[in-house]
Simulated assay, not measured.
Amino acid sequence: MKPKILLTNDDGVTSAGLWAAYEALSAIADVTVVAPATQQSAVGRSISIFEPIRTYEITLNGVPAYSVGGKPTDAVIIGLYSLNLKPDLVVSGVNIGENLSYESIMTSGTVGAALEASNQGVRSIAFSLQVEDQGDKFDDPSRATQKFEETRRIVRDVCERIFEHGFPEDADVINVNIPSRVTGGYEVTRLGEKLFHTGVEKRLDPRGRPYYWIDGPLYADAEEGTDVHAVRKGNVSITPITLDCTAFRAAARLNDIFP
Rank of each mutant, 00 (worst) to 15 (best):
P206I: 09
R54L: 13
R209S: 15
D172G: 12
I154D: 07
T151H: 03
T145H: 03
Y22D: 00
R203F: 09
K2H: 12
R203H: 12
L100Q: 08
P3W: 08
P141F: 05
G70H: 00
E98Y: 06
K86N: 14
G121P: 11
L243T: 03
D256A: 08
Y211M: 12
K194P: 01
A20N: 03
G93R: 08
T110E: 03
I78F: 12
Y186M: 06
A75V: 05
S124D: 01
L18F: 03
G93W: 05
F148P: 00
E223R: 08
T145C: 00
V33G: 00
P168H: 00
N95T: 11
L6E: 11
S101N: 05
Q40T: 15
K202M: 13
G199K: 11
Q134H: 08
S237K: 12
N177A: 15
N235L: 13
I77A: 03
Y22Q: 00
T239A: 08
R152A: 12
T242V: 13
K71M: 11
P87E: 01
I58M: 15
A35S: 15
G185Q: 07
D88T: 02
S108V: 07
E116R: 14
G185V: 00
R153A: 14
A117R: 04
E224N: 02
W213A: 11
R123C: 02
T145A: 11
G121A: 07
G166T: 02
L6V: 10
A222Y: 08
D227N: 13
I154F: 05
E187I: 01
S142M: 05
V94K: 10
E98S: 15
L218R: 15
K233T: 15
D133A: 12
V76P: 08
D140S: 06
T73M: 06
L115E: 08
K4F: 10
T107N: 06
P64G: 12
